[in-house]
Computed example of a mutant assay.
Amino acid sequence: MPYKTQEMVVVTGTSSGIGRATAVQLAAEGFYVLAGVRRQEDAEEIKQKNIEPVILDITAIDTLRALAERVEQDPLGRPLRAVVNNAGIAVNAPLEMVPLDEFRRQIEVSVIGQVAVIQALTPALLKSGGRVVNIGSVGGKISMPGFGIYSAAKYAMEAINDSLRREMSSFGLKVIMITPGGVSTSLSEKGVSTADRLSKLMTPDQHRRHDRLFDAVKAQAESWATSGIPPKKVAEVVSRAIHASNPRTRYTAGRDSALLTRLVRILPDKLLDRMLRSQMKLQ
């Protein structure tokens, strides 16, 4: 549904998956989308009506400043309706052996980078009465074996999301968390590739302890890549959160997310442990 006065939306991580689907969805609805990508070839690929690619590395302050200036100095004076914080990575490995530099990289991209985007665009969002839409994960509600590093980042974003919402509510800034379950995206495939690379760093003792877990992590990621919901389903939920005059604080996307976010609140830890280990065939 196009708006009489076109509004802008910033979406990060639009090279593929949820970010790409969200940019396309919102552009089709009449928003002018600034689509963050890291590479020029991705910029050329996503450029179309109502989508303007922006070279953006959310860990690089100069690209964030450039994005904020682009929003503030928009030649048509379009207000910023929302920022969709989607960019992220997945580092999946047993906690015992994951290199600390990999842990730092996960947090740098998937937590600090998200906060940096919010900080850069808060002035424009406050001016327009806009909203922050953070793309979380069921991994921010429940931490599966082998996914602790990824979940640490997603749990952190849950805390940041809640704190920001409570800090800014009196200033008109709405803050929303979208919690997808398994989604068929290249992030799952990249997670498998990362797991393969990290598995080569293990000692013989660690191999004996964790080879089975690595196989389970890769099988789980491959399952999401092939049988997860399509990214468009998440994009539709994002669209609802942006269009709603009084949005909910949280939305789930996918049946597994709706189920697991409820189970984690009612099941005892030890029962949940057994269920997750059984699901990943670690029993």
Rank of each mutant, 00 (worst) to 15 (best):
T5C: 00
E7T: 04
S16T: 15
A23G: 05
V24M: 11
V24T: 13
Q25N: 06
R39L: 13
R39H: 13
Q40C: 14
E44L: 14
I51G: 04
V54K: 00
I55Y: 01
L56Y: 00
T59L: 07
D62Q: 08
L64M: 00
R65Q: 12
P75F: 11
R78F: 09
V83P: 08
V91Q: 04
V91I: 14
E96I: 06
V98G: 14
L100T: 12
E102H: 08
F103K: 01
R105W: 06
E108W: 07
I112S: 11
I112Q: 08
Q114I: 15
A116Q: 10
I118T: 15
I118H: 11
A120E: 02
T122S: 08
A124S: 11
A124Y: 02
K127C: 04
G130V: 06
V138L: 12
G140T: 07
S143W: 03
G146Q: 04
G148H: 13
S151M: 12
S151P: 15
A152Y: 03
M157K: 04
I160F: 15
R165D: 05
R165W: 07
S169Q: 12
S170N: 14
S170K: 11
S170F: 14
L173I: 08
L173R: 00
M177R: 09
G182W: 02
V183P: 05
S184R: 08
S188N: 10
V192S: 04
V192E: 01
A195E: 03
R197D: 10
R197G: 09
L198T: 04
L201S: 14
Q206F: 03
R209D: 06
L213A: 07
L213K: 02
D215H: 03
A216R: 02
A216S: 13
K218M: 11
Q220E: 14
E222T: 11
A225H: 03
T226C: 13
K233D: 10
R240T: 08
A241G: 12
P247L: 11
Y251W: 12
D256A: 05
A258I: 00
L260S: 10
R262C: 13
R262P: 14
R262H: 15
L263N: 06
V264T: 10
D273W: 05
R274Q: 06
R277D: 05
K281G: 09
L282T: 13
